[in-house]
Design a protein around this nucleic acid. Structure first.
Lengths: 349, 349
DNA sequence: TGACATATTTGGAACGTTCCAAATATTTAA
DNA sequence: TTAAATATTTGGAACGTTCCAAATATGTCA
């Protein structure tokens, strides 16, 4: 390869100024004379100078690395990919770069990547925590003055900011919609009860039932893995109840798809024979058959909000824990039985 | 917050050794006495020491940062999200971290993020280039001894390694399948002719036609944006030809979906009235109606291969440009008319 | 025990930047 | 024309590590 790196000293020599002046130019200081500035810039271009951020960070105390760490629990899931894109958008336009890692729901992996990010001197962290993450896990970071924003899944007890969607309101509107369609026996299917998101969504379900003047029955709540397979399992348990439900709100879209599978296996057609509503509005929801009625949360929006919040804290130098909930909206498609027939024009974009 | 950073010197003092010894411990050198090592480790834990990689990189010439830059053109597309996950898997288990950025097909953005990554001292770069990327854009990197691996879209003329799927073979098998189903007039729809991928896929189409003993007609090749809208446009042009095609292979799945839309708008049912085959096997392909017959490429696999290749070059210290093509396979579903009716068991996984 | 080999430890001097206090140029005001 | 003010430039000394050459400890063999 080529020889050694070009440093500010090389530039200084070539431009006939001191390294301090070059540094000033690098930082866009107004102290330097226009003529000098352009000469220095010209030399830099000519010599192919590359700024060494590592060296700079070393001198400038901690928080100036301009790296934002982003940790998501499942990048394969387009919901989180969108989230990452949202973060990237604002992070990038603020002149930061993003360090993205995927934990695949592994808590160990999460610990590793966060440690690694810390070693690299991130100025802030956005994390969608892996399941069963200990609230104390991010203590050391905030203690070191590195702001942390938790997104999607909140971490009760952790003294960090968070951005979550309005799970409760979303579930309420789903239940409300089903009630308006005349359903009385509405089940809540899927999800692990040990998560904060589950609690929120369940609470929304309860208030929705209450608001619609319907009774809350313990046995209409069937938890399961928040996956397609979990959905199959959950509907299997719900459909054999003496007092069969006629509709279900699901913990998320994956569960909802599983519920549809399970219904079909029992010769019931989702939409016409049984109403199904999901949560998240993942990309497949509109292309599915029947198209899934679901609560749409805007993952890019969450990402952007989270990033904004984080940047604010980085700039403020002080991390006031703050919680923001982003709005959601019910998207009515076919699986709730409200609309028959083929996919609508609007949805197919 | 708390006071200053804990440094190697603090550790040394507290453990009663010299900073050099601490450094040795950090590097896991076999030179240090077991007893000393464990004492030092204990002190590090106790004081909450965090390794400062930036400082280390400063000393250790260039290529040791253990950061891999990953640049994709569209993270929203689950194809590329999967790719990133594939990369992350191997990168992470090799003890590197990944710096992921999204360019949204913007060449300027791409230039920015690559520059930024360089400043941060990446040890290598994996990139799925934005459309119309200049092959010379990565010259400076390789000149600086930073290995670059291009994935998915190759960059003819750039002296870098690449990992691409076997576009040609994939298209051939698609054409072959349609020919076996009895189609004689098969169109090639969608895609921008200025890309290498287009050339490859088109070449596959031509050889496929030839292999099946069918004539290649210039007017059966209709290019368009590689998007859903582009698909609508392309089928619109193809369906009005005097000698109407009865089937089409599409540049990618998005185009294929658009083609289906366009067919329906003309009261033709994809699958029964006209056979459609896509390329990529995006996640929506199996859930669509009709389920899309398509050429499945394994994006995670490409990511893994790319990462392996890159790590190999990093370790070798020498970047021998190398091209690997990964295998693809045709997934027969409904849109080609080979199978009627509802979705199969296998596909719904 | 002495001499040598082997195992362990250790002070600097880098690495490429930023910051500071101070030096030097250039203007301005009288 | 000169003093004071303002505009620009500048040598070190950090920052937290790794590397080197050399020092010190420990062990081995006659």
């Amino acid at each position: 390869m080529t020889k050694a790196r070009v440093t500010v000293i090389d530039i200084a020599k070539a431009a006939g100024v001191s390294k301090s002046t070059v540094s000033l130019v690098l930082q866009g200081s107004s102290l330097v004379n226009e003529g000098t500035r352009s000469k220095v810039n010209a030399v830099m271009r000519e010599l192919g100078y590359v700024y060494n951020r590592g060296a700079a960070n070393l001198r400038q105390a901690g928080a100036k690395s301009r790296i934002i760490g982003v940790v998501v629990n499942d990048l394969t899931n387009s919901f989180f990919a969108e989230l990452a894109v949202g973060v990237d958008t604002v992070v990038q336009s603020a002149g930061f770069v993003q360090f993205l890692s995927n934990t695949s729901e592994s808590i160990d992996r999460q610990r590793e990547v966060v440690a690694s990010m810390r070693e690299h001197g991130i100025s802030g962290l956005i994390v969608s925590p892996a399941r069963a993450t200990d609230a104390a896990d991010f203590k050391p970071l905030v203690a070191a003055g590195i702001p942390v924003v938790v997104v999607v899944r909140n971490l009760p007890g952790a003294k960090v900011s968070s951005v979550v969607s309005d799970n409760q309101a979303g579930m309420m509107s789903a239940v409300n919609h089903l009630a308006e369609l005349g359903h009385k026996r509405i089940a809540f299917l899927g999800g692990f009860p040990d998560t904060a998101v589950f609690d929120d969504r369940l609470a929304g379900y309860r208030s929705g039932m209450e608001a619609a003047g319907l009774d809350y029955h313990q046995e209409f709540v069937v938890s399961s893995a928040p996956s397609r397979a979990g959905g199959v399992e959950a509907i299997g348990k719900a459909i054999v109840l003496a007092d069969k439900p006629t509709a279900a709100v699901c913990f998320n879209d994956a569960v909802a798809f599983g519920v549809c599978d399970g219904l079909r296996a029992r010769r019931l057609e989702p939409g016409s024979d049984f109403a199904v509503v999901g949560f998240d509005d993942v990309i497949e929801a509109q292309a599915a058959v029947p198209a899934l009625t679901t609560v749409s949360v805007d993952p890019q929006g969450i990402g952007r909000r989270g990033a904004q919040l984080l940047l604010k804290q980085i700039n403020a130098g002080k991390a006031e824990a703050e919680t923001v909930t982003t709005a959601v909206r019910l998207v009515v498609r076919e699986s709730c039985g409200a609309r028959k027939s083929v996919k609508s024009k609007q949805d197919s974009e």
